[in-house]
Structure formats: structure tokens, C-alpha cells
């Protein structure tokens, strides 16, 4: 062999070349595939929004269906008043993390609302984020025009235990929400409680959690309670104003 592969200079040269080649290759691949990935994320978000109003479409069909059904999107603040900004591009998960980390104050948070027309009339789709056992959990709950009856829901998570906490992403858990109400008849806010798994609850303001996924279930419960309280203010103000009209 003409060179000494164990010399210091060759070791440095080899390391430099190897890292540069691997780094360049990864950077090129990442930049090349990033649009495809981001489009997947965008379509999945549309798919989730639609799923919460019981419209289940393939991911590729989501953008067209989204255009067709979602009539209006806007942001509201904690008092239910409209604020500036684009609802779809707001990263509620990042906002939630910033709030938890103390970067944002509670009254700086913005809440997206998607107004849509489903097969049973107009619904409001409300995104929400919370904390499960291993990482964030999130979901969308759609509420009927009356501002208190849940029409549908969808939940997802980053890394909850498969078979336990991860079951929040299955119809078994999500289908319980339809028909539940977030307020009493007289308008008192109740939210939706997540009970211990397997209680078979008949509470009009509560659902069964996941057996063995207690911390995830509690996280979902906390998320529902906290976020729906804010949306309740908004929903009351809009339903009252349309009723008065």
C-alpha cells in the first residue's frame, strides 16, 4: 500500500471526507424530500380536521374535500373575540409548548376555529393540544350549530404506548364523543370529563378513558376541560348573536 492509512494526517483527511460526503448526501436528500414531507403534514392536518366532523377521506383527497366543506377559518382570543392571523398555519402545538415554557402568557394564546358545513348542517371545528404520558396529545372536536352538542372528534398523539394510551387515536375512544354536550341545558359550562377506563359512563358530559392508559386519558381530559372552556365563551357569544339577529 502506497500510503499509511493509520497516519495522523490520513486519519484526519478520512474523517473530514467521510463526514462531508455523508453530510452533503443527507442535506441534499432532506432538501429534496422536504416539500413532499410538508405536504404530507398539511394534508394530514386537513384530514384530521375533516375526520372530526365525521368526514373520512384518503389523505390525497383531503385538500379538495377541505376546500369544499370548510367555509371559514379564523382565530379567537381567550375571551372569544376574533383576532388577526391565519388559523390553518397557526401551530397550536408550538404555541402550547411556548405557553408551558413561559414564553407566552395565557392571554396571548390564540385559538383557531374552522367553520364547516357537514351533512347535518353547520359545525365549528375546534383544535386542541395537551400533554399525554410520553409527549403531546392533540385533537379536534366539532360542535354543532347550537354551540354545545359535540358532533364528532378525532385525537392523535406523538408517542403514547401502543395498545394503551395510543388507543385515544382509535374509533373506540373517539366515537364516544358524538352527542355529548359541553354545557348544561341552562348554559353552565361542564366540559367533557374523561373517566377511568371501563366505567361505562352514561354522563352526558363525560366519556370512558382508556384502561391502562390512565395518564394519557387524564391528559386528554385536562386538554378538553381547559380548551373547551375558552371555546365555550366564543360559542356562546356567536350563538347568542345569531339567535338575536
Amino acid at each position: 500500500m502506497a500510503f499509511d492509512k493509520n497516519s495522523n494526517s490520513f486519519t484526519f483527511l478520512f474523517a473530514t471526507i467521510l463526514v462531508t460526503v455523508v453530510g452533503t448526501l443527507l442535506a441534499v436528500t432532506y432538501i429534496g424530500l422536504k416539500p413532499a414531507y410538508e405536504e404530507n403534514v398539511r394534508r394530514e392536518k386537513m384530514q384530521n380536521i375533516l375526520a372530526s366532523m365525521n368526514v373520512r377521506v384518503e389523505r390525497d383527497a383531503a385538500p379538495a374535500k377541505y376546500e369544499e366543506l370548510i367555509s371559514e377559518t379564523f382565530l379567537v382570543n381567550g375571551e372569544g373575540k376574533p383576532v388577526e392571523g391565519d388559523a390553518f398555519s397557526l401551530d397550536v402545538l408550538k404555541q402550547y409548548k411556548d405557553w408551558k415554557a413561559g414564553v407566552l402568557e395565557l392571554d396571548q394564546l390564540k385559538y383557531p376555529v374552522y367553520k364547516a358545513t357537514g351533512s347535518e348542517g353547520q359545525v365549528y371545528i375546534l383544535p386542541m393540544v395537551g400533554t399525554g404520558l410520553w409527549g403531546p396529545v392533540w385533537g379536534y372536536v366539532s360542535v354543532k350549530k347550537d354551540g354545545r352538542t359535540v358532533y364528532g372528534s378525532t385525537f392523535d398523539h406523538k408517542g403514547e404506548t401502543p395498545g394503551l394510551g395510543a388507543e385515544i387515536a382509535t374509533p373506540m375512544f373517539q366515537d364516544q364523543f358524538a352527542g355529548k354536550t359541553i354545557t348544561e341545558e341552562n348554559g353552565t359550562y361542564t366540559g367533557i370529563k374523561v373517566y377511568k377506563g371501563g366505567t361505562g359512563t352514561t354522563d352526558p358530559h363525560g366519556v370512558d378513558g382508556i384502561s391502562g392508559g390512565t395518564i394519557t386519558s387524564d391528559g386528554v381530559g385536562e386538554m378538553l376541560m381547559r380548551t373547551l372552556a375558552v371555546y365555550d365563551v366564543f360559542l356562546k357569544s356567536t350563538t347568542n348573536s345569531t339567535a338575536a339577529r
Partner: peptide
């Protein structure tokens, strides 16, 4: 050509890549 002193690191870089 992999220098034996950094072979584990080189393997790791390739695996990670």
C-alpha cells in the same frame, strides 16, 4: 482505507447516515 483508530466512529457515521 478506514483508519483503524477511528473505525468505530466511521461505522457509526455510516450507520447514522
Amino acid at each position: 482505507v478506514i483508519p483503524s483508530r477511528i473505525r468505530i466512529i466511521a461505522q457509526l457515521v455510516i450507520a447514522a447516515g
